[in-house]
């Protein structure tokens, strides 16, 4: 069955760039969320195999998305990749401490993203 990847990112272009760089991986379905609220809504609905999230978003930030995934019995097995802009060290450290599995700095190299995704999806 196709793997499902939830991409949480408020910039439509960055979102589509993330998704297009995953295309080489073959069979997968991207579920898009443009803010934290949508992410919370789509998590139980689609039960994704992987979450890729930005940190700096309105309403609910990406760290809270990470915590929501990692502290919830139903979701904590889902790996999370943080994709964030350089320079926000404190935020990145907190993300990893909350249980995020990887982080990538924007602008990222599509091959790096592919490698992390392949690792995490096994």
């Amino acid at each position: 069955m196709a793997k499902r990847i939830l991409v949480v990112e408020d910039s439509p272009i960055t979102r589509s760039l993330i998704i297009s760089s995953l295309e080489d991986l073959g069979d997968f379905t991207a579920v898009e969320a443009s803010n934290g609220f949508q992410a919370l809504r789509k998590l139980p609905e689609y039960l994704p195999d992987l979450v890729i999230t930005d940190i700096n978003m309105p309403d609910i930030n990406g760290l809270e998305v990470v915590r929501f995934v990692k502290e919830n019995e139903n979701f904590k097995h889902i790996p999370v990749i943080i994709v964030t802009t350089e320079g926000r060290d404190v935020d990145r450290e907190r993300g990893l401490k909350l249980g995020a599995d990887r982080y990538l700095i924007k602008p990222f190299d599509p091959e790096d993203l592919q490698r992390h995704v392949r690792d995490l999806l096994g």
């Binding site: 408020d10 910039s11 272009i13 960055t14 700096n56 802009t85 924007k106 602008p107």
Partner: peptide, 14 residues
């Protein structure tokens, strides 16, 4: 946040 988004966005497009 706007400046931040612009930075990320333009970086992605080189």
């Amino acid at each position: 946040r706007s400046a931040h988004s612009l930075k990320g966005l333009s970086g992605m497009l080189n």
